[in-house]
Amino acid sequence: MYAFEIDRPTTLADAVKALGAEESQALGGGQTLIPALKARLAAPARLVALSGVDEIKGICTADDGALCIGGGTSHADVAKGAGAYPALASLAANIGDPAVRNRGTIGGSLANNDPSACYPAAVLASGATVVTTNRQIAADDFFDGMFATALEDGEIITEVRFPVPEKASYQKFDQPASRFALVGVFVAKYPDGVRVAVTGASEDGVFRWSEAEAALSSDFSAGAVEGLSLSGDGMISDLHGSGEYRAHLVGVMTRRAVAAAG
């Protein structure tokens, strides 16, 4: 690792102030950023560790029924505390391994927007709202391609608000070495329609499969998406699987998610 200074503020206000300095970068749980620093893929002058900021941790239910999760909440705490949204709790319980889940945070995962991460699929499929230190960002406006988001420099994710669906399931085809999704599909059924978000597949990062959403909104059954398929063009192709293979898996995992959601 290149040398850097590290700040560990205990309030959000101090964290925002520290991030205002030149070449500062926020550190969430560090489960992605620390390995990246070791590989010298990033060279910030100063890291601002958010792990001491208790006011962005925790889970609660809003007056409108939405499940609100603080940006600094660990995957382990979401797995235990998001019982009101079982598909989301289950997603969190299957990220990485137990030690990683004790450190990694929802805000960190979303800000990083790894094209194979699990949380982006949940946020996009739920039409969640990402609340930051500056504003509220709708899920459809938040993700901006591989490792890119609408976040500006120094902006911290303080909370994510998930409308709780009638039915939902996340099905992840594990890449067993990294424990990321080779392909993951989150299906969520709301009174006004079904949303389907796919992670791990596209070179543009997480995306909504609108054709499947339309089919499932009129008939919420695995059979409704039986004949649908995606092209392998623009899909991630690497030693773990070709673009065509991933495109095929999207269909398989979508059907499994619908079946599991009931």
Binding site: I6, I34, V100
Partner: peptide, 9 residues
């Protein structure tokens, strides 16, 4: 994992 947390944290 003690290799993936800074001492300062």
């Amino acid at each position: 994992k003690a290799c993936t947390i800074f001492a300062a944290e």
